[in-house]
């Protein structure tokens, strides 16, 4: 796919501008980490980018967007609702087809969650919920990943494993991360956001933790 050039992004909240005007060129193959203080506008920026590239992206929003009453399987399956007909989706709601079951099962296996497949999302822990949202994004299998703090509730090893997955499965990604080390390890480009503006935009190999800390 082509990259995308985002020009003049702005967002206001309660009459006060929180983002931009801001421009960002995203090239194919870029793995961008958005870093910055909380409240700098990272989440808003992710949302704005999602509005622009909707159709080609997998989204993991900060509040995950799970349907609490549905099982883990159905929440993951929701990533591909647009690829099936209405009746197929409706039947799946009542009784999933075995090939979908297997696909979702193996995906969850890689995230270490197979035993929870038929449990409603409402009864999961924070970390498990996050992995369901990640699984949904993986299942959607779009070329671009847009994620807002996707591993904030996971412990160290699990966070690393998930980040590896995300890096390998998506060619292009924009991920908001408050963990600077993860950003440096799994992303190729660091974009620092400060007061709704791009304050830093450099390849990660040229940066160290202390360079980024100046944003905070």
């Amino acid at each position: 796919m082509k990259g995308f050039n985002l020009l003049g992004l702005t967002a206001s909240f309660g009459g006060k501008r929180v983002i931009g005007p801001l421009s960002l060129q995203v090239n194919p193959g870029d793995k961008i980490a958005l870093v910055g203080k909380s409240g700098a506008g990272k989440s808003t920026l992710i949302r704005l980018i999602h509005e622009r590239v909707n159709r080609e992206s997998s989204l993991i929003p900060q509040d995950l967007g799970l349907v609490n009453a549905l099982s883990v399987f159905h929440n993951v399956f929701m990533g591909q609702l647009d690829r099936h007909s209405t009746w197929y989706n409706t039947l799946t709601l009542a009784r999933p087809f075995s090939k979908d079951r297997e696909a979702v099962h193996s995906l969850l296996q890689s995230l270490g969650m197979t035993e929870k497949l038929w449990i409603p999302a409402a009864s999961l822990s924070g970390g498990q919920r996050q992995r369901v949202a990640i699984a949904r994004a993986l299942y959607r299998n779009a070329p671009v990943l847009l994620a807002d703090e996707p591993v904030s509730a996971l412990d160290g090893p699990m966070a690393n494993s998930v980040m590896t997955h995300l890096r390998d499965r998506f060619t292009t990604s924009v991920i908001a991360l408050h963990d600077v080390e993860l950003a440096l390890n799994y992303c190729t480009r660091i974009v620092g956001i400060h007061d709704g503006q791009v304050a830093l935009d450099r390849p990660s190999e040229h940066l160290s933790v202390s360079d980024i800390m100046s944003l905070y």
Partner: peptide, 9 residues
């Protein structure tokens, strides 16, 4: 929120 993250289309 779940409605927003649905795949477009």
């Amino acid at each position: 929120e779940p409605g927003r993250v649905l795949p477009p289309g």
